[in-house]
Computed example of a mutant assay.
Amino acid sequence: MSKVITAHAVSVDGYITGRDPGAGRGLGDATMLFDWYFDGDTPSQVFDGFHLSEPSARVFDALAGRVGAVVAGRNTYEDSDHFGGGSPHPAARLVVLSHRPAPEITDRQTLITTGIEDAVAAALKAADGKDVGLMGGGVATEALKAGLVDEVILHQVPILLGGGRPFFQTLPGHVRLHLLQAVPTPGVTHLHYQVQR
């Protein structure tokens, strides 16, 4: 059965971007959150050009191989220059959640303007039995509020950014997590949680 997961590189103080992210500026001054994609000798079997440490490659590829569709919020979509008309994942369809029209949507992308439930439903259909990945703090928070998230994965990079866009926004209450796996590797610790219901 398909699961809904959210996985992000995140600073120790909880940021997924640096200061001043946006179109043409990417994720701001936080590129070091992704250094671990390129600081090893083991090529990813899913993402061309990624060379990770062996333990990071094992964790990363296992997760990336599960994903059949991605839901991204409008901020993430804009900050990432529309993913070049495709998707942030080489084999997964992109669903963009926005409350306003996005005329630049391509035929390889789907725009949903009616809320997180509809976006996740569209992604589950597009995933064809694989899992759905959530991309962006707003999308992850809305999906958590709606009780749609099965797993939370934090690729925690040992840095304090001191500002930027936080991964999690305000939630209406506590969300309890159960740690499934913790894998310390060079430059990043992979924390894999199951959402308790």
Rank of each mutant, 00 (worst) to 15 (best):
residue 91 A to T: 13
residue 54 E to D: 13
residue 81 D to M: 10
residue 48 D to F: 11
residue 32 M to Y: 09
residue 65 G to A: 07
residue 112 I to N: 02
residue 49 G to Y: 12
residue 118 D to W: 01
residue 102 A to W: 00
residue 48 D to K: 12
residue 45 Q to G: 15
residue 40 G to A: 12
residue 112 I to G: 02
residue 89 H to W: 15
residue 129 G to Y: 10
residue 91 A to L: 15
residue 118 D to P: 01
residue 25 R to K: 14
residue 94 L to I: 06
residue 54 E to N: 11
residue 79 D to E: 11
residue 123 A to K: 01
residue 39 D to C: 12
residue 96 V to D: 00
residue 79 D to N: 13
residue 45 Q to W: 09
residue 39 D to V: 08
residue 16 I to F: 11
residue 76 T to E: 00
residue 116 I to Y: 00
residue 113 T to C: 01
residue 60 F to E: 03
residue 95 V to T: 07
residue 23 A to R: 14
residue 55 P to L: 13
residue 64 A to I: 05
residue 129 G to T: 10
residue 42 T to F: 12
residue 65 G to Q: 05
residue 130 K to F: 13
residue 55 P to G: 10
residue 95 V to Q: 01
residue 16 I to D: 03
residue 111 L to R: 00
residue 73 G to A: 06
residue 118 D to M: 02
residue 43 P to T: 07
residue 125 K to W: 06
residue 42 T to Q: 15
residue 43 P to G: 05
residue 84 G to Y: 14
residue 20 D to Q: 14
residue 72 A to G: 05
residue 120 V to D: 01
residue 60 F to R: 03
residue 61 D to T: 06
residue 56 S to K: 07
residue 68 G to R: 01
residue 79 D to P: 02
residue 63 L to F: 15
residue 42 T to N: 12
residue 53 S to T: 14
residue 71 V to D: 00
residue 76 T to F: 00
residue 22 G to L: 13
residue 49 G to E: 08
residue 116 I to V: 14
residue 15 Y to S: 05
residue 106 T to N: 13
residue 30 A to Y: 02
residue 56 S to T: 14
residue 107 D to I: 05
residue 16 I to C: 08
residue 53 S to Y: 11
residue 87 S to W: 04
residue 110 T to E: 08
residue 105 I to N: 01
residue 17 T to A: 07
residue 122 A to F: 00
residue 57 A to D: 03
residue 112 I to F: 06
residue 38 F to Q: 08
residue 84 G to S: 12
residue 40 G to M: 08
residue 69 A to L: 07
residue 73 G to E: 01
residue 116 I to M: 03
residue 87 S to G: 10
residue 64 A to Y: 09
residue 70 V to D: 02
residue 111 L to W: 00
residue 114 T to I: 08
residue 63 L to H: 15
residue 100 R to Y: 04
residue 105 I to Y: 02
residue 81 D to G: 09
residue 130 K to S: 13
residue 37 Y to L: 15
residue 54 E to W: 14
residue 115 G to Q: 05
residue 105 I to H: 03
residue 94 L to F: 04
residue 67 V to F: 15
residue 22 G to T: 10
residue 117 E to G: 11
residue 79 D to W: 10
residue 55 P to Y: 12
residue 129 G to F: 09
residue 43 P to I: 04
residue 63 L to T: 06
residue 23 A to G: 12
residue 45 Q to V: 14
residue 35 D to C: 14
residue 16 I to M: 12
residue 74 R to M: 01
residue 38 F to E: 06
residue 117 E to R: 07
residue 70 V to S: 06
residue 18 G to D: 04
residue 93 R to D: 07
residue 30 A to N: 04
residue 62 A to G: 13
residue 117 E to Q: 11
residue 54 E to C: 11
residue 102 A to I: 03
residue 116 I to K: 00
residue 20 D to V: 13
residue 25 R to I: 05
residue 25 R to T: 07
residue 27 L to I: 15
residue 66 R to D: 09
residue 70 V to H: 03
residue 89 H to E: 06
residue 112 I to Y: 04
residue 78 E to D: 13
residue 54 E to K: 15
residue 60 F to I: 06
residue 52 L to K: 07
residue 37 Y to T: 04
residue 117 E to S: 08
residue 74 R to Y: 01
residue 33 L to F: 11
residue 33 L to A: 06
residue 45 Q to N: 12
residue 30 A to D: 04
residue 65 G to P: 02
residue 104 E to R: 09
residue 72 A to R: 00
residue 15 Y to I: 08
residue 111 L to I: 00
residue 116 I to N: 01
residue 22 G to S: 11
residue 100 R to S: 15
residue 17 T to D: 05
residue 71 V to R: 00
residue 93 R to F: 10
residue 26 G to K: 05
residue 57 A to W: 03
